[in-house]
Design a binder for these strands. Structure first.
Length: 225
DNA sequence: ACCGTCAAACTGGCAC
DNA sequence: GTGCCAGTTTGACGGT
């Protein structure tokens, strides 16, 4: 795609690390979407078969039945589809850059300037907004995918850590009795609820049934943590 | 000739 | 009533 996006989609996105400028050429090549096709097409598009110098807006208002067109929705034949000239596209892009929506006056003025119908200008802006939004959505999607990936990795890492901590808990620390200086049996140990240090269990605490350990919040195995 | 992509144009629904 | 949007249709065009 290169620096000059053929469709020149300008994107704004509240994604860290991505350009969020609403200015021109905000889009950094994401590769997705309009590929190279347009770049080529723009070179050839709307070129008269003769290849000679043509009017500035060759694809302007079609002469054919304007009335039919209005009523023609769903009619037997749609009018031939137009391809906007490079100059028309350029000017439309330019005004889109300034404003993503048009007032009726602006629309009318632009239509006159481009020799298009106001409806065409309106449709172009609608489609242009849609394309911009689509591009943004695609970028957000990519960003969220990356987030998902890193969070999955983080989750795996934390799970491993939990397993390691659980494994360490199997072998409780040796705590010496303050009285006898002899190692206390694991069954005599409890966790101090205030300082979360392993202490020698009192006789009453040892007899009091304790609630089952919460598997999601395993107690710390020792004061070392 | 066929297919995929892009964009012009249309349609119906919704918000104001 | 008007304008916008999401979804769709359709034609132009390039690539194979």
């Amino acid at each position: 795609m290169g620096s000059t996006s053929p469709s020149g989609l300008e994107l704004t996105m509240a994604v860290p690390g991505l350009s969020s400028s609403s200015g021109s050429e905000g889009f950094v090549g994401c590769g997705a979407g309009n590929g190279n096709g347009n770049a080529m097409r723009d070179l050839d598009m709307n070129q008269p078969a003769s290849g000679g110098e043509e009017e500035e807006f060759p694809m302007g208002i079609v002469e054919e039945d304007e009335e039919e067109r209005g009523a023609g929705a769903g009619g037997p034949h749609r009018p031939k589809k137009l391809r906007l000239s490079k100059e028309q596209s350029r000017l439309l892009e330019e005004s889109f850059r300034l404003n993503h929506t048009l007032t009726p006056k602006q629309k009318e003025a632009l239509a006159v300037k481009l020799k298009l119908r106001p409806r065409q200008v309106e449709v172009w802006f609608q489609n242009r907004r849609a394309r911009t939004k689509l591009k943004q959505t695609e970028l957000e999607c990519e960003y969220l995918k990356r987030c998902f990936g890193s969070l999955t990795e983080e989750n795996r890492r934390l799970q491993r850590e939990v397993e390691e901590l659980r494994a360490m808990r199997v072998a409780p620390p040796t705590v010496l009795s303050p009285h006898t200086r002899q190692p206390l049996p694991a069954s005599a140990l409890t966790m101090c609820p205030r300082c979360e240090r392993v202490t020698a269990a009192t006789a009453t605490a040892a007899r009091t049934p304790r609630p089952a350990a919460n598997p999601y919040h395993p107690r710390r195995p020792s004061a070392a943590f």
